[in-house]
Amino acid sequence: MNETLRTRDCDKVLLVQAEFDGELDAAEAATLAAHRQHCPACQAAAAALQRARLLMDGGLYEPAPDDVRRRVMARLAAAQPPAPAPLWALRSRMRAWWSAGIGFGLGAACAAALALLIIAPSGPDPTQELVASHIRALQPGHLEDVVSTDRHTVKPWFDGRLDFAPPVKDLKNEGFPLKGGRLDYVDGRPVAALVYQRDKHIIDLYIWPGVLVGGRLPPTAEYHGYNIVHWRWGGMTFWAVSDVEPAQLSDFAQAWQRAL
């Protein structure tokens, strides 16, 4: 290092930095201020620190993107032992997790989806949560974690990511081609979401094992313009969510149950 620069330096520049970073108490800061008045090196250091901070001010922070956050939550939920807490407690906890991310510039559509989650009344009916999840997934880049029209690619993708093996069927011949799948988080647990297409519409099929507590739910529902069809098969719960016509969604449900 250049010797002329060395001699120009002051051994208090790290103290100047400590003050800049809020690490000095008032007495120490006062002592330093008295010194700095007569020390060009410390004055230069203070100005340089200010410029360095301006360089890093704003826009460099990298919050977890929505899809990354969702996958982390799913992995964590899968890793935790089955919670004894009732469903509504899990659901409100999940809302808290999601709302923790609000401050970081999520898209407007996502904010709308979160609002749906937050105002959703507690209860065993996941309809509103599913619609919110569906809307969230429709944002660019959020729809599929695995993109494939081949069910032999999609099905193994879930291995190791879920504690169950969701059945995967392609309904191309019935007019509902498979597009891919993703891991999602609904009703307090990680679930499989299969993505199908009908013309320009997307159908999300959510699958998880077991049946909901709280009695029978109507097999079809409508919420905020989205249609929902619900059935059970092979010990698993199925929910299809889409903006296609109710009749078409029923066709989808029947085709799915008929298909091998």
């Binding site: 620069l5 060395r6 120009r8 340089a48």
Partner: peptide
């Protein structure tokens, strides 16, 4: 090295 040069 705590003696830090200002090469700015």
């Amino acid at each position: 090295d705590d003696i830090v040069g200002i090469d700015l």
